[in-house]
Design a protein around this nucleic acid. Structure first.
Lengths: 170, 170
DNA sequence: ACAATAATTTTGGCTATCCTAACATTTTTT
DNA sequence: AAAAAATGTTAGGATAGCCAAAATTATTGT
């Protein structure tokens, strides 16, 4: 009985939390799940039943809660989405960790494969391209705060960029 | 009777569509709203009642549907979020328009002020900073497709960047 | 004007998600 | 091992969102 209906955001959240609890504590307890998701204990029971029916968690009353292989695969996928997005928010946009975290929690349910791949690529590119790099992102932050480009410094900025590249190379 | 509960994503969608219909046709009809949101006509009636109760739309059975001033303000805000996100996806990440559009539709409900501001800023910065600009984004696309930086070209890339800046300046 | 057509609303039913409070089970203390 | 505490489950109810079909109101063509 494999349900074809796509997972709801709520169910994705449960899987993600269970995966994380499995890693930190050895096992996921309903109470901890409830706490993480800011939900009542009773609500968790219902969710677990639903997930068990979809073949994503192993569940029997009063017993341990674990992810099935399929459940683990799904949870890992969601977890990856979360990390990529949080990384983008902190590393590129320079959003403070707290905000990045909560935003990632919401965004992870709505970005599909292609966008995610591009994000991965973009983070990478910005960190590795000699013309980009941390200092370009630094200039971005300055632009954010001051609201304007310091045109007069652009020349030296580019020169420094070139210099840095040359010295790294040789 | 001003409801304090924050708008649901669904309600935000309704407001956004009504705003757009008000602009293109002079007035929003329930049938068109239903079509845009891929929902049955009956569903729209319920949503409109809810929105009317919150003071966001003017609604009476069988009459025209318009946004109240407050409703307009909210709709404009959502619409702006949508545009900024779509812009980022197309201009920076170079996601095809179609995908960018549908992704923006989902993302618009989950990004809050700070992240949005940063996105605006980032798009701007990438387009205006001489060290960034369209050609840097071009290099990004190449990196996406090939999967690697062409390190040997980096020198000339930076040189060209500098040259372009100088000639623009003088 | 008035029947035919189109648009809208109402009704009843469904799923998903959550809550509270009472109850059951397991674990821990004493 | 009995009592207490912690944890898990059930039952009943709420809200939001959707659909399908029946009932109602508007609009239009002749």
């Amino acid at each position: 009985m494999i349900e074809k209906r796509p997972l709801t955001e709520s169910m994705e959240d449960y899987l993600e939390v269970i995966l994380d609890l499995e890693r930190t504590h050895k096992v996921a307890r309903a109470k901890d799940i409830a706490e993480r998701l800011q939900v009542q204990r009773g609500t968790v029971t219902g969710a677990l039943k639903a997930l068990a029916e979809k073949g994503l968690v192993n569940y029997a009353p009063y017993s341990f809660i674990t992810l099935t292989p399929r459940g683990t695969a799904v949870a890992l996928e969601i977890s990856r989405r979360h990390q990529v997005i949080r990384n983008f928010l902190t590393e590129v946009l320079r959003i403070p960790p707290e905000t990045a975290e909560t935003t990632a929690c919401r965004m992870e349910h709505v970005v599909e494969g292609m966008v995610l791949d591009r994000l991965v690529c973009f983070i990478d590119f910005m960190q590795q391209c000699p013309r980009a790099g941390t200092d370009l992102l630094g200039a971005f932050i300055h632009y954010c705060e001051s609201g304007e480009l310091q045109r007069k410094h652009c020349g030296t900025c580019i020169d420094e960029c070139k210099e840095r590249f040359r010295s790294r190379k040789e």
